[in-house]
Amino acid sequence: MPDFLQSRGFSRTLPLVLFALAAAIPFGLSDYDTNLVARFLAMGIVALGIVLTWGHGGILSLGQGVFFGLGGYAIAMHIKLADLAEGEIPDFMQWSGRTALPFWWEPFHSPVFALAAALVGPALVAALFAWAVFHRRVSGTYFALITQALALAFATLIISRQDVTGGFNGLTNFTSIFGFLFAGPGMASALYWITLGALALSWLGLRWLLGSRFGTVLRAARDGENRVRFLGYDPVPFKVAAFALAAMLSGLGGALFTLNAGVISPALIGVAPSIEMVVWVAIGGRTSLGGAIFGALAVNLARDAISSSFPEGWLYVMGALFILVVTLFPQGLAGLLSSRSGKRGENPA
């Protein structure tokens, strides 16, 4: 590998160049393709959270879809309400024979509440959940299994409560957000740039966080939790904070995905999609922020390409990806690129 790929200047300028290229995409691609990339960028935000919690915290969550869904549903509920005339209730509720809005839908009339709920809601749920499990020192495998049960229970609950959640079809048929029409001119590009901006900010924030003392303690707890205890730290708050922050990023990604895709449904947040989010990060390199974004984009582009021509083939590809990446490339693509520098898992960029 040429030396300039390892150089400091290159690793400084590469993100800027990529960001500039990404920002230019709406000028080069059709609205449809721009929108597609925007969805994948939203998933990249979810992947960034997984780098924090799994790559650096050693906490494998098989339930990130739950937080993705909380973010997505929060924003979708607001849109459904905002599209209504005075005194009406959303279409799917009428079809299910409801006559009044459930009380917990009421606050979502407020755009501020909906935005806050999309971010704070997932973080709160995640913090409570993680604290309840971690403060009893339950092993990481147990945590993963419990998060999977959470993903299953959440998706089942949404499907079964069709009259208040939209059920299996989810929430869709959006008209406008904050007064802007989804079908309006330039809307696809605007949503794309918002998503790209959120991704860039998340990347910058996490880069700083992982380089800080917080990141150091988190990695120490990953590699030797009891040693960290003996050194006088309580690892639990660090793990809870990392998991909650990852959930918040998942919620942000879910909200932006919902805006770009125009739909949020249980099929996007259940057991299988949740664990798929982990493979994006595994492919890119579990400790690498850039790798995670790349992984989310690459896997979703590949799925789009493969599943349109061979719908049955995609699950084989996905299964093989899971197996190959953990057996042959546990550090992912980022590990292949940085294998010369010898340091594994240290570089948060």
Partner: peptide
């Protein structure tokens, strides 16, 4: 698979999930 990964429990979860996807699709 599992023998190769037994030192890494979380990776085993992911690898065997891949097996599960393949077996389900094969049955389908």
């Amino acid at each position: 698979l599992i023998r190769r990964l037994s030192a890494r429990p979380l990776d085993t979860l992911l690898g065997t999930w891949g097996v599960s996807l393949i077996l389900q699709q094969a049955a389908r």
